[in-house]
Design a protein around this nucleic acid. Structure first.
Lengths: 197, 197, 197, 197
DNA sequence: ACGTGCGGGACCCCCCGTTTGT
DNA sequence: ACAAACGGGGGGTCCCGCACGT
């Protein structure tokens, strides 16, 4: 890896948690300067604007938090188990290695109308997550663990919505209980989809 | 009502949707000046800081969006019906009269660490919402519509989390489907809690 | 005294020490509002501008500090004693009843170029002070206590300059020593002017 | 000298007379922008706050006015002559190259209570000046020009107080006479300290 | 006559994201 | 990659007038 690439990567590693914690407009370049030890010019060499940097930082943040969520998951052939593992992973360490909570949630909320670059990345991340769920559900259907008329996309929406909503509550209350309750509920929900359930 | 009170109220009415759409740090005072037609001095006569104004604006926004959600609701003696009405109200018009979506969700995400004033208001709003749900669940239990061992607080968390999470997805996808799926899921969930269900 | 006059007088009493301590441009109307308990409009009823108020406050401050300096002074027929009393009065309580030190010094420095209203008042106050000294010197000459060729105006300048300069040093060092040294020096100076001295 | 240092120096050169004329709180950043030809960002790169800039500007102003006062002075071995030269230098060109008069006097008056940074600098400048006088007096004593029991610090206080006070009067009256009278008086005072005087 | 309440708009200091020399 | 400068806001405060009660 060239020196420039290493620097670029280092910037993203330092910037991602800051953007994720303080938000896009709440983060100042001087925060990033301090975190990276670079001057503004040094940062601008690698990114043409704050927005572009934020977008790249989102991708990095998402890969950091999503990798453990999905890792060693799609390998398994047991769809139901994969869903439950996904849920557990999220509920037990929602912000693994990423201060500020789930980048998808944070970015989706802030980038709501303006800031198309960030919004596009968030959409892509959501789509990716949904796909993982859908794959698992379809696997479960094929394996006759889940009823044939189960709607994979609906399951994905319910699963993601409940987890992200519970994360919001947990963060607001500074109490993991909401996440635990969401997990229990989703486990029961998955079970209720079981063939003959 | 004195003139000053009317002006203060007008400021809140104009400021609430702006803060809700652009976020606290994304909103500049000039945005509020333009929306209210007042100069800075005119605004700062009624609020001592942007943060105080934002906190009051959140309260206003919350009362605006929550009033229709809960109106004519606690009067009914049918707990289950009350829960379903709440869900429908949210799913069908999540941001009635309030551009930018649900103020609770938006504020909870942005005010995460700093900005205690806003955070406190968001917590209070969440608590209020939970209480409405809990009241309805307890009513349902008393009326023997719901199983005795139903946990009212857990139901509240599930309901709110699922709706807020689905709202986030809907806004990101610019598609109401997620909200509809959340509603269907929650209706089924409520039914599954029914006595003998 | 009419109510309005009483209010005007009260404003001056409260405003004078504030202007004297914080300076003209360092004093905000809100400081005066707080001190007087009046609203801005209530203050502006009695003074058409901050500058006019400051000028009137200077006159008040000057009368407050100069009255004790000169009181029961011109009555005495002993010119030399009068000079020494003046010096002692200043050296021992330079800012009697007037926080911030000597209004003449403070105002002369700040009103240097702009703010003609204040400058004029300061000039008048200096002139008044000089006259008191000159009167005493001339009295001393007539009484043959002082040499005939003594220049009364020069004595006035030396006396005032030394005292005000020493006051500046004392305030900067937060130590009365400089004032004491000035007093000793001026006493010796006066004595050196004595007939046959 | 690096570019930045040159710019910083230029800012101080331009800012010092402005602060000295209009005072700390009477000086606005736009005044400095206009004088330097820099934008706000260009100024704030070199100073972290107005107060820090003012403090540095005071140091600059003081060095500008004090250098000619003390230059080629301590070299001389004649203490009495050194004192008289100091007095003449001050009386004849009290604000050489520095509009607004003596920075020590101006700053001491304005920085009275708050603004510790400026106050500290003024104290230091006074101390420096006193030391020059004290050195000259001690030199005179050693050379047996001055009486052994002469108090060097008292002489310093008298000399500085009289000159600064006379400067205040001169500025207020827009007439150099007061300074001339102070000079004559101080010359006589110095002579009166002469051995056998 | 007197005082309050309200609003205006210019200005405050400071910090922003960005561009340019080097 | 840094150092330097740029402009244009950032939130907040200033002094002041006007409309209103009493």
């Amino acid at each position: 890896m060239r020196k420039g690439e290493r620097t670029r990567h280092m910037i993203l590693e330092k910037a991602a948690p800051i953007f994720n914690s303080k938000g896009y407009s709440g983060t100042a370049l001087v925060d990033l300067m301090q975190a990276t030890g670079l001057e503004k010019g040094g940062i601008y060499r690698h990114f043409s604007s704050k927005e572009e940097l934020a977008a790249a930082a989102f991708d990095h943040a998402w890969s950091v938090v999503s990798a453990p969520r999905f890792a060693a998951l799609d390998a398994s052939s047991n769809g139901v188990q994969r869903l439950k593992t996904m849920i557990s992973n999220f509920a037990e360490r929602p912000a693994k290695n990423m201060p500020g909570g789930c980048p998808l949630l944070n970015t989706a909320i802030e980038a709501d109308d303006n800031n198309t670059a960030l919004r596009t990345r968030a959409k892509r991340a959501l789509e990716e997550w949904k796909l993982h769920v859908i794959n698992a559900v379809e696997q479960g259907i094929r394996a006759k663990q889940l009823r044939r008329n189960t709607d994979p996309e609906a399951v994905a929406v319910i699963l993601i919505a409940t987890l992200e909503g519970a994360l919001m509550i947990s963060r607001l209350e500074r109490d993991r209980r909401a996440l635990q309750q969401a997990k229990d509920h989703l486990f029961a929900f998955i079970d209720s989809l079981a063939e003959g359930g």
